[in-house]
Simulated assay, not measured.
Amino acid sequence: MTQPGPAQPRVTVLTKPGCGLCEKAMVVIEEVCTDLGVGWTEIDITKDEDLFAKWWEQIPVTLVDGVQHTFWRVDPDRLRAALTR
């Protein structure tokens, strides 16, 4: 799922189906990104063997501008700060 925003989403969230932490993280990310007008995208790691092998223990993983920002839980204030620098 990709949400409207700049041409390249600044936030990427690596998730997998049935992940409760992923669902909670997505709520925070959608709220912060919508407030700031920042694009974001969600990638299901179960559809990519390399992503699954690299990230399965840390999901959800949040990347900002392609760099790992956090994993497991997303702090809205910290995400907002990273996106407004």
Results as ranks from 00 to 15, higher is better:
Met1His: 12
Gln3Arg: 14
Gln3Asp: 08
Gln3His: 14
Pro4Thr: 07
Pro4Glu: 08
Pro6Lys: 13
Ala7Thr: 09
Pro9Lys: 07
Pro9Tyr: 05
Arg10Met: 00
Arg10Gln: 02
Val11Asn: 04
Val11Cys: 05
Val11Thr: 05
Val13Phe: 03
Val13Trp: 03
Leu14Gln: 03
Thr15Gln: 12
Thr15Gly: 02
Thr15Met: 13
Lys16Leu: 09
Lys16Phe: 01
Gly18Ala: 08
Gly18Leu: 06
Cys19Val: 07
Cys19His: 07
Cys19Ala: 10
Cys19Arg: 11
Cys19Leu: 07
Glu23Ser: 14
Lys24Ala: 15
Ala25Lys: 07
Ala25Trp: 02
Ala25Glu: 01
Met26Tyr: 00
Val27Cys: 03
Val27His: 03
Glu30Ser: 13
Glu30Gln: 14
Glu30Trp: 09
Val32Lys: 04
Cys33Phe: 03
Thr34Gln: 09
Thr34Ser: 12
Asp35Trp: 07
Asp35Gln: 15
Asp35Met: 13
Leu36Thr: 02
Gly37Val: 08
Val38Glu: 00
Val38Leu: 04
Trp40Glu: 00
Trp40Val: 02
Thr41Trp: 02
Glu42Gln: 14
Glu42Arg: 14
Glu42Val: 12
Glu42Lys: 14
Asp44Gln: 10
Asp44Pro: 03
Asp44Glu: 12
Ile45Pro: 00
Thr46Trp: 10
Thr46Asn: 12
Thr46Ala: 12
Thr46Ser: 12
Asp48Trp: 10
Glu49Thr: 10
Glu49Ser: 12
Asp50Met: 13
Asp50Cys: 04
Asp50Gly: 10
Leu51Pro: 05
Leu51Arg: 10
Phe52Cys: 11
Phe52Gln: 12
Ala53Phe: 02
Lys54Tyr: 07
Lys54Met: 06
Lys54Leu: 11
Trp56Phe: 11
Trp56Ile: 14
Glu57Pro: 00
Gln58Gly: 06
Gln58Met: 13
Ile59Thr: 04
Pro60Trp: 06
Pro60Ala: 09
Val61Ala: 07
Thr62Glu: 03
Thr62Trp: 02
Leu63Gln: 11
Val64Tyr: 07
Asp65His: 11
Asp65Gln: 10
Gly66Arg: 10
Gly66Lys: 12
Gly66Val: 06
Val67Lys: 15
Gln68Phe: 01
Gln68Tyr: 04
His69Thr: 09
His69Cys: 06
Thr70His: 06
Thr70Leu: 04
Phe71Ser: 15
Arg73Lys: 13
Val74Asp: 05
Val74Met: 06
Pro76Glu: 09
Arg78Tyr: 03
Arg78Met: 01
Arg78Cys: 00
Leu79His: 05
Leu79Tyr: 06
Leu79Met: 08
Arg80Pro: 00
Ala81Trp: 05
Ala81Thr: 12
Ala82Asp: 01
Ala82Gln: 07
Ala82Pro: 00
Ala82Thr: 07
Leu83Ser: 01
Leu83Tyr: 02
Thr84Val: 09
Thr84Met: 09
Arg85Met: 01
Arg85Asp: 03
